[in-house]
């Protein structure tokens, strides 16, 4: 799994997870969604084309696009800027676990 700052990232809040192994997009999103629910996330999806899961304690979100398989981590703005990359990294490791992928490398957190 790779992690990179999202193209529209402001102040290290948005991160993109890119799995190493390609999968069928909808199936993959559906699987990650189920795993997130199991891990205590809450489903906040409003539109079927954009799946949104939120951790009720930290308010970090994982956003999934069934159409393309895109995975976006949204770190909550209350996290101090310096800690945001690490929070994103930790969530990316969690998603890597769901997909049976190796963890992203810490040097990708730039």
């Amino acid at each position: 799994m790779q992690i990179q700052r999202d193209p529209s990232c402001v102040q290290f809040l948005l991160w993109r997870c890119v799995p190493e192994h390609p999968r069928e997009s909808e199936e993959s999103c559906s699987w990650i969604g189920r795993c997130l629910l199991h891990a205590g996330f809450v489903d906040q999806t409003r539109e079927t084309w954009l799946l949104v899961y939120e951790d009720p304690r930290s308010h970090h979100q994982v956003v999934l696009v069934p159409r393309t398989g895109r995975i976006q981590i949204r770190v909550h703005y209350l996290v101090p800027i310096a800690q945001r990359p690490l929070v994103a990294f930790s969530l990316a490791c969690q998603i890597a676990d769901f997909l049976g992928e190796s963890y992203p490398k810490a040097e990708q957190l730039r």
Binding site: D6, E47, W49, L50, V65
Partner: peptide, 16 residues
């Protein structure tokens, strides 16, 4: 516009 076009919302609604 650029931010919207690059967003997951756009990708879900229209495609990348």
């Amino acid at each position: 516009f650029g931010g919207i076009l690059r967003s997951p919302e756009w990708e879900g609604l229209v495609g990348a």
